[in-house]
Design a binder for these strands. Structure first.
Length: 571
RNA sequence: CGGGGUGUAGCUCAGUUAGGCUAGAGCGCACGGUUCGGGACCGUGAGGUCGGCGGUUCGAAUCCGCCCACCCCGACCA
């Protein structure tokens, strides 16, 4: 490809709106164009990379026994109502209506459609296990699109679904996908770690997310270096130790605390650690008020809380809701509270003599004890793991890292098969719901993560396996026809040799060309100039190294080929 | 949805505080010339609903109101 003809120009100054490196580089290099928030167009270079990413994924899915299919994006709304997911996903769906006023949604994922298809084509245990996958557009009206391609509203996802006769079979399918995902990310030159994750609202069992760790990521992950524990902060557990368990229960005592509303102020004023206090947090779970109690030094993990509450929707109460529920902000506690569901962190029953609200303005209680003074309807682990907490498994110190979630695998079980009636006939002649798993990778997000992981201050550094072209041929010809002729000749030779080459044939100064070559990030730069021709050579330079080397013209193609082969392989 | 921010040429921004006459700069783009190994130089030129609508005013990029878009931080996910 001639750079002079390429659709997509580099920009000297990146748009100010881009903050994360991948977003900035994608725009500055002219790879993508934004259409609206979370919706992008992909120009030739980006599209080439995306196709290579898809090919890597396709390879690994096929190797694992997956069969590729194509499913509709236009999905009848009733299908979503049948599984009950319509209510849950409603706000995230793009809705549409056909000319007969039949309601459709643009598929945000394809479990419903595929399970329905499965029903009509699979009848027997002999057809199982079955692994099918699709690579196609999904549409989600995300509340907040983010950071270029990291969080999109229209995006491409590889989704593979597994169908097994039993849970052991599902374990095997799951393991296959776990391995396939590891292969995909390795081949894409992208460091990734698997962390345990929330299996979501679909009653699944195991679940892992594949994370690329970077400050730019939007997920928090918890790691233990000594034993290898790795989990999304949403579900991460930790070792909880009661700080005051050995104390003898003391009589409760009310004290005036005017002007003290926060745990910080309260603890400071009473000269006690925040771990000596009991904090109250108000949530609405599926519209019902929930009183949440947790030790003052800890924070509520909303994923854990949602599960403990058995709720689909969970949000911090608004001021109106708090007043409506009759809570006393600043001095609330579960002591004497009636008619409201109380959920307590499981550390509270072990603590003694905590400071808690008195449930009336400007007053708190000293020496509050669980069991004697109050009880919760639900006692569960609802605390958020934090940096420095103890590892549940080994006691080591936990670390928090940010990550981009590039892939998610989970065991669905029978959620969809039961609701949609997807059964198979087993050996015993009985119809049984098929056991499913679901495994997704976002390709544009993967592309963004690849750039996050592979760039320097000058631009992108494509992993060879994904680079749109292997060679960036720079001609410093100007109007010197000898240089131009030699460049054209080498360009032809390389193409005939099957080498993917981007040829900078523009009438630009050397500085412009070199800077664009660095920005665009092809693995190998080959320069032809007056200077190299005087030595009857061309210059070869890897994007990853500052060093250049001369290759004789008569064996230039051979030398380039060797240089490509010598690149750090992504395999 | 809550909080914060930004909208002036393709990109980066000045001009808005204190309303004033043909709205500016750099880069990019087009043409001509000189240059040619790390974002060169000279000349000429094209390019603008100043986010939109309404209001105040003799006069609005500038003041007021409403709306919209985009970015960032939180609740969701690949």
């Amino acid at each position: 490809m001639r750079l002079s003809q390429l659709f997509g120009k580099t920009q000297r100054q990146p748009p100010a709106e881009a903050e994360t490196p991948s977003h900035r580089l994608l725009l500055q290099a002219g790879l993508v164009g934004q259409t609206s928030a979370g919706v992008y167009a992909y120009l030739p270079l980006a599209w080439k990379v995306l196709r290579k990413i898809e090919q890597v994924i396709r390879d690994e899915m096929e190797a694992a026994g997956g069969q590729e299919i194509m499913l509709p994006a236009l999905q009848p709304q009733e299908m979503w109502e049948e599984t009950g997911r319509y209510q849950i996903w409603k706000d995230l769906l793009f809705h549409t209506v056909d000319r007969r006023e039949r309601r459709f949604v643009l598929g945000p994922t394809h479990e419903e459609v595929l399970t329905d298809l499965f029903k009509r084509h699979v009848k027997s245990y002999r057809d199982l296990p079955l692994l099918v996958y699709q690579i196609q557009r999904k549409f989600r009206d995300e509340p907040r699109p983010r950071a270029g391609l990291i969080r999109l509203r229209e995006f491409t996802m590889k989704d593979l679904y597994s169908f097994d006769t039993d849970w052991e079979g599902l374990d095997v399918s799951y393991q296959k996908m776990y391995q396939a995902y590891s292969n995909v990310f390795r081949r894409c030159g992208l460091p990734a770690v698997a962390v345990m994750a929330d299996a979501g609202s679909m009653g699944g069992r195991d679940s892992h997310e594949f994370m690329h760790l970077t400050e730019v990521g939007e997920d928090s992950c918890i790691f233990c270096e000594s034993c290898g524990y790795a989990a999304n902060a949403e579900i991460a557990q930790f070792r909880k130790e009661a700080a005051h368990a050995s104390e003898r229960p003391q009589p409760a005592k009310e004290i005036p605390t005017p002007g003290l509303y926060t745990i910080q102020d309260l603890a400071h004023h009473l000269k006690v650690p925040t771990s000596k206090t009991c904090k109250a947090v108000f949530y609405a779970a599926d519209g019902q008020p929930v009183f949440v109690a947790i030790r003052g030094d800890m924070e509520v993990n909303e994923t854990k809380l949602r599960r403990a509450a058995g709720a689909v929707d969970l949000h911090y109460m608004t001021e109106d809701e708090v007043i409506g529920a009759g809570f006393v902000p600043g001095s609330a506690s579960a002591v004497g509270l009636k008619g409201v569901k109380v959920i307590a962190d499981d550390l509270l029953p072990e603590e003694r003599n905590l400071v808690a609200g008195a449930n009336k303005p400007d007053a708190h209680l000293l020496n509050v004890n669980y069991g004697r003074d109050w009880k919760a309807d639900v006692v569960a682990d609802i605390a958020l793991a934090k940096e420095g907490y103890g590892c549940l498994q080994c006691g080591g110190s936990l670390e928090v890292r940010r990550g981009i979630e590039m892939g998610h695998i989970f065991k669905l079980g029978t959620f969809f098969s039961e609701r949609l009636g997807a059964t198979y006939l087993d050996r015993d002649g009985k119809a049984k719901p098929v056991i499913m798993g679901s495994y997704g990778i976002g390709t544009e997000r993967l592309l963004a993560a690849v750039i996050e992981a592979n760039h320097d201050e000058r631009g992108i550094v494509w992993p060879p396996a994904l680079a749109p072209y292997q060679v960036h041929l720079v001609s410093l010809g100007g109007d010197r026809s000898a240089v131009t002729e030699a460049s054209e000749h080498l360009y032809d030779e390389m193409r005939q040799a099957g080498i993917e080459v981007l040829y900078d044939d523009r009438d630009e100064t050397p500085g412009v060309k070199f800077n664009d070559a660095d920005l665009l990030g092809m693995p190998l730069r080959v320069t032809v100039s007056q200077r190299t021709l005087e030595k009857d050579a061309v210059e070869v330079k890897a994007r990853t190294s500052p060093d250049t080397a001369l290759a004789p013209r008569d064996r230039a193609v051979e030398a380039i080929r060797e240089a490509i082969a010598g690149q750090p392989a992504a395999e």
